[in-house]
Design a protein around this nucleic acid. Structure first.
Lengths: 345, 345
DNA sequence: AATTAGCACTCGCTTTTGAAGAGTGCTAAC
DNA sequence: GTTAGCACTCTTCAAAAGCGAGTGCTAATT
């Protein structure tokens, strides 16, 4: 059954009001809004219908109505209106990135901080996902007699490094040779497939330096599996009346600190431009009264990581989306600029 | 005026009880403790004295007494008894470090997690302080035509790296030469003095590669000033009845997230074996009803970083100290093992 | 047939009240 | 110097009362 225009109008007004105030909305409140021609009784009837259809909840008999997950879903799909963020806000966000930033990690932290400060929700950002990124170069640098640094350079300019232990004596020249050999093998191969390619195409050279190669392959795998995530604005949890219960808040902070769930959520969202999960749409029971909105950032035109905010279902989706959009653009710009000066020249 | 033995005994009993229960201690409670010969009335008189002397506070007329900062100070200086942690606890802590750990950062995170899980307080760890550490080597590695990686190796095995932009064309051979030159100059020079030494002793070679050198010196300074700190167990704030007030808790989490204050506190404590700051002994007003206990960790026998916990003044100092002691040893072991395999061989 | 005014009713929230309990300080006796 | 006894203070908890926002239903109105 399709909702009548009036029902939609009322539903939208309820959601807008509830997002704004956080207080269950009563019929009288609505009827006094400018542009509302109907009496409170009419609205009450419509509200009763909407409740029956599953769009509204009533915390208790004598309270106003609150939107259900279903209502928010309808809202984000059809009712809400997204404005572009204001110039001032754009400036404000840009400022978070304007400091001297040299490392990818710092960019991510800045983004998380910007997001949480601007949206007043908890923000999260994952580091670039490397699995599908193609390698450009592998370099081994001898640091001490038994340690070397392994440097992986990807074709979008990301540089990852890691210390490895060299179990047998290898001099600097040999290491240079190994580097060149490895680079030849993995050119344009994704990190995911690097091990396989090295093991097959480089079979004989591996045997020669087996001990070192094993360390290198180990290190590559560790890098692949590295799960890096930053979050920000944890203290915003206190803005959510849902979490005024200390026990719940504590539990939630625990979840944040573990990071595992957030990581799952974000890594599942790496290919979609935007994603919105409302309440029980989330895969985790713990997020059943939270909404998660995510977006992706790009480096070199390729979606490579995602970020988002998590907050109560009562969230200003329109605003969050516009902020996410802008932060995504900024993030992509900054990273591309940080990493790809060569290509730009 | 020196406190009588009986006063000390009573004070200690009050503190022990208060640390244990968190409830203001009354005279009757004390008089019923085994080993207490005096009546509640006697204890009341002594308590009144102790209050006048500033060792006890009374939240309100008809409540028991709570220890003052001064009392805790006396307690940690003279009254408390530190037990070594149990074998089980030691195992438990060691487990946090037993996973595959490859990077200094991960060790710090593990330590923070161990500390907060075991003490149920908020923990914090700063990364090794490099200012006074002597350099062993500087290596430049060309990554792309315009980017290079600068690697700093210190004589205790720490490796720091950073990307720098190369403004003019420099080929790999020249870069190797520069690396050797820089290494010669800064051998055994502390990071703090590296810039000065390079500028004076390397005057003519600098001119030759001024643009590159400027980038290198910049990077060294950024590394010197890098403030890295991890904290853990933020959700333990909810265990502190002092912070059951949401607003206070929020404010405190904000302070944590900023990290500046924690960093100050820890970096001031890098040379002392242990330090205990109780309540108003802390330099920051925000910590006026918290205690901060810190310890240091070593690499290669040299104190190089510190860590600690922050919690309510009502803290089990004896236990916290023994845990800190053990974590400090573990941390020093692991880091030394991670970094200095050469020296050990 | 749709809308609205009116009204009794529900239920959460806040304030009030009162009782219980823990602890004190003081006095007088030991 | 120590202790028993007692009146007094102050918090805490729970129940009770009152308030007010909001509802659903009915009957009147358009």
């Amino acid at each position: 059954m399709e909702l009548s225009d009036r029902k939609l109008q009322i539903l939208k007004a309820i959601i807008d009001d509830y997002i704004d105030t956080g207080v269950p909305v009563g019929s009288r409140t609505l009827s006094k809004k400018p542009g509302f021609e109907f009496s409170s009784a009419t609205i009450r009837n419509e509200m009763a219908d909407l409740e029956e259809l599953g769009y509204l909840d009533q915390p208790h008999t004598s309270a106003g109505r609150t939107p259900s997950d279903m209502a928010y879903r309808l809202y984000v799909d059809r009712l809400m209106h997204i404005d572009r963020i204001t110039k001032d806000e754009a400036m404000f966000i840009r400022n978070y990135f304007n400091m001297r930033i040299n490392e990818v990690d710092e960019v991510l932290e800045s983004a998380a901080k910007a997001l949480s400060d601007v949206t007043k929700h908890i923000s999260m950002v994952i580091a670039p996902q490397l699995d599908d990124v193609k390698l450009k170069r592998i370099q081994l640098v001898k640091i001490t007699p038994t340690k070397a640094m392994l440097i992986l350079v990807t074709d979008n300019g990301l540089v990852q490094d890691q210390m490895i232990t060299i179990p047998v004596a290898v001099d600097a020249r040999q290491m240079e040779m190994l580097s060149n050999m490895l680079t030849d093998m993995v050119q344009n191969v994704s990190l995911k497939k690097a091990e396989e390619v090295i093991r097959t195409t480089g079979a004989e050279s591996i045997l020669e330096h087996k001990a070192v190669m094993d360390e290198v392959l180990d290190a590559i795998n560790i890098n692949r599996e590295k799960k890096e995530l930053v979050y920000g604005g944890a203290q915003n949890i206190f803005n959510y009346p849902e979490y005024k219960d200390i026990g719940k808040a504590q539990h939630f902070l625990q979840i944040l600190e573990t990071k595992d769930m957030l990581y799952q959520v974000l890594s599942n969202a790496t290919d979609l431009e935007f994603s919105i999960h409302i309440g029980r749409e989330n895969q985790y029971e713990d997020f059943k009264d939270m909404s998660i909105v995510t977006a992706t950032y790009k480096v070199g035109g390729k979606k490579i990581g995602s970020f988002g905010v998590i907050g109560p279902t009562r969230m200003d989706y329109a605003r969050v989306l516009s902020v996410l959009n802008y932060v995504g653009m900024s993030l992509s710009d900054i990273l591309s600029c940080l990493l790809e000066t060569d290509q730009n020249k």
